Amino acid sequence: MLKKQARKIYDQKRLELTYTDRLKWDDLILINFQTVETPQLHAVFSFYPMEERNEVNAFIVTDYLHFRNPSLQICYPKMEIDVPNMEAMACHADTIFEANEINILEPLEATTVDPLDIDLVLVPMLICDVRGNRVGFGKGYYDRYLSRCRPDCLKVGLSYFAPVAQIDDADEFDVPLDFCITPEKVYVF
């Protein structure tokens, strides 16, 4: 399957999900995430889920991680649309978020965290294949960012759907996931 085809199919499938199904599946994703053994985490880079795109609720995972480790630093992306570039920004409970020009919520005032200090990245996605090749919205922000992280930084995709057999046009710039957490199971790559 080509990325363009996967993007169209899984974007539509996700948009067709009911609110009730998403709530149930988000809980199952959290339950499955809790089975993954992670090293001691100091900084996690997450994403602010786009409600209008029916993205997986990453907050339940970050809330769980923060509950386990109250000193954990949770970061969210700040994008430079024209470059394109993205940085992890250290956030806290009082951080104010505002939509950028492509309608992604970003922290208004926060401190940049070096990619080498990030231990785990929760990666937004539409679908991946059985080798961990992820399909997002095709702008490459996350692949560029992940290439700057340490090799041992865990790359975790959250998806409502099981991986497809193959993304045929994955290339050398695509950074594969280490895990994909779905409502049914944890996929390890």
Rank of each mutant, 00 (worst) to 15 (best):
L2D: 13
K4V: 11
Q5A: 09
R7K: 08
Y10F: 15
R14M: 05
T20E: 10
D21Q: 12
D21C: 05
I31A: 15
Q34F: 01
V36R: 00
M50V: 13
E52Y: 15
E52K: 13
N57T: 11
Y64W: 13
N69Y: 07
C75N: 01
C75S: 08
Y76G: 03
M79L: 14
M79G: 06
E80I: 12
D82E: 09
D82P: 04
V83H: 08
M86V: 09
M86C: 03
A88Q: 00
C91S: 01
F97H: 07
E101H: 11
E101S: 10
I102N: 00
N103W: 11
E106Y: 03
E106D: 02
P107W: 03
E109K: 12
T112D: 03
V113G: 06
D114W: 01
L116R: 11
L116A: 10
I127H: 00
D129I: 15
R131N: 08
G132V: 11
N133C: 09
N133E: 03
K139D: 03
Y142F: 10
D143R: 03
D143W: 05
L146Q: 00
R150L: 05
C153M: 04
G157Y: 01
F161A: 11
A170R: 15
E172L: 08
D174H: 06
D174L: 05
P183F: 01
E184Y: 05
V186C: 13
